[in-house]
Nucleic acid binder design. Structure first.
Length: 458
RNA sequence: GUGAUUGUAGCUCAACUGGUUAGAGCACCGGUCUGUGGCACCGGGGGUUGCGGGUUCAAGUCCCGUCAGUCACCCCA
């Protein structure tokens, strides 16, 4: 449609905003449980923050331009460089290990597709200053706990785990020299998405012998450490890395998330800076793109900011996650205002002009209620009450309130059938006189009688 | 950036091989109904058929371009 948002950008109408808020709430709630603290940085950064170290692969998709001061700038495509700079600047002062998270809006200039827009929000969770595999286990546990928090289970989402150091050792043991390992990584990354013959061709072209090719193509099928060839498993080069992965899995088990996790040595991660355990979260059916990806990047802080600290982290975008939640009907369907009270004109509207109505609304709000009403002074007295109540229901309000006579105020619940809903009348005079005990009585009754109309959405 | 495919109201869709003022349901607005008020019914607003050209007596329908969506590449979050 013409005149809409720019391609790849989204308008968040209240319903969509509620869904976004639902995801953000889960992110923040779980981060808090794991004792991470929130930070943020600028959405606009110097261009070279991204071109210097991340390489050309990212440069072609940057949303960049020259600002009015002649500076080359870019909308941030990822948070890690900003994070690295912030940590490096205060590396000595920060208490380790650092547990930080952020929910930046990120931008990339590339053709939009399902699950990939030009803009998205991405939870970033990072740990700095801890090199042990326990930190890796803690990090993955955060990601999985978010899935749980949103109502997903181990049948919906799978975590796939690999380890760059282990993979390096395995390839070396197979006899592949380091200069050719990059090509092998590329093939492993695409192993599931391209025909086996293509993989074989590419590996052969990379200079691997038939034996090596066979050994490499076995790797993605390994589901347990014991399934590795014996000579690989027992090699002195490989063993320490296998031991670490074993310990890592033991920690995951203790943290209660091991049933979500599979070994998958074809998980490579595109970004070149990963150095250790890496992981991705996928929907179990494999219909969508990765929900989440991350791992250990022990050299990046040093390369980027000169702080020699081990670090690890993950990013989780709102787009794919949102699609999965919608598919599983785990998203709030519609928002409504959810106001406590909706004021309508009742039988007493003629005795109480709009001024009285507004005064009551004002006092109710001052007493702590959220109050909605039709913004027409005219219809307050002329529109049939039943039609006003219809509007109140559609608004999602929990109860209606009106002048039911010259001397009384009626509060009536909107949950369920109107006839069965709780209702109560209060004397209007003390309420209009801002009598505190009258409002206290109203609040008590409301709290005891009126239930939320959307108990499942909260 | 490459290729394929789609584009009618806010949403989901209709309109025979081109043929009167492009329709319906839902949603929205107003109203009616004092025993099914999260119901039924009545009425209303809203579309230069994505946009721009072309063919034709006549285009939502055919052709070209363009923009946008979707999918697959590329690549990655």
């Amino acid at each position: 449609m013409a005149g809409g948002a720019l391609p790849g950008f989204r308008d968040f109408y209240p319903d969509e905003f509620a869904q976004r808020a639902h995801i953000f709430r889960a992110w923040r709630e779980v981060a808090r449980k794991y004792a991470f603290v929130e930070y943020d940085g600028p959405p606009l950064e110097p261009l070279d923050l991204y071109t210097k170290k991340s390489g050309d692969e990212i440069a072609g998709q940057l949303y960049n331009f020259t600002d009015k001061g002649g500076r080359e700038v870019a909308l941030r495509p990822e948070m890690t460089p900003t994070f690295a700079r912030m940590v490096a600047e205060r590396a000595n002062a920060l208490r380790k290990p650092v547990r930080w998270f952020s929910i930046p809006q990120l931008f990339r200039y590339e053709r939009a597709q399902r699950g990939r827009l030009r803009e998205h929000y991405q939870l970033n969770v990072d740990i700095v200053g801890e090199g042990s595999e326990l930190a890796d286990a803690e990090l993955l546990s955060v990601a999985i706990s978010i899935m749980k928090e949103l109502g997903l289970d181990a049948a919906d989402v799978r975590a796939r785990v690999s380890d760059r150091r282990l993979l390096n050792a395995l390839l070396t043991e197979i006899g592949i020299e380091e200069s050719r390992q990059g090509a092998v990584y590329a093939v492993l990354d695409k192993f599931a998405r391209q025909p086996r013959e293509v993989s074989i061709t590419k590996l052969t072209e990379a200079g691997l012998s038939a034996d090596m090719v066979e050994a490499v193509l076995e790797l993605p099928t390994v589901k347990e450490i014991s399934a590795l060839r014996e000579n690989l498993r027992n090699s002195a080069t490989v063993k320490p890395h296998l031991d670490r992965l074993t310990t890592y899995f033991a920690h995951l088990h203790s943290l209660g998330v091991s049933e979500w996790v599979d070994i998958d040595l074809s998980i490579v991660r595109g970004l070149a800076y990963y150095t250790g355990i890496v992981f991705e979260l996928f929907d179990a059916k494999g219909e969508l793109r990765a929900i989440c990806g991350g791992g250990r990047y022990d050299n990046l802080l040093n390369d980027l900011g000169g702080a020699d600290l081990p670090a690890l982290g993950f990013g989780m975008g709102d787009v794919v996650l949102g699609e999965l939640l919608k598919e599983r009907h785990l998203m709030p369907e519609s928002s409504g205002t959810g106001a406590d009270l909706f004021f309508v004109g009742g039988n007493g509207a003629l005795e109480h002009p709009i001024g009285d109505a507004l005064r009551l609304v004002h006092l109710l709000r001052a007493a702590g209620f959220s109050v909605d009403y039709g913004l027409s002074a005219d219809r307050y007295q002329t529109q049939p009450t039943r039609n006003q109540v219809d509007s109140a229901k559609k608004s999602g309000a929990r109860a209606v309130i009106c002048f039911s006579s010259g001397t009384e105020v009626l509060v009536h619940g909107l949950a369920g059938k109107l006839k069965e809903a709780p209702a109560h009348t209060f004397a209007s005079r003390p309420l209009l006189a801002a009598d505190e005990t009258a409002f206290a009585a109203l609040k008590d009754w409301f709290a005891a009688s009126i239930t939320s109309r959307h108990p499942s959405n909260d």
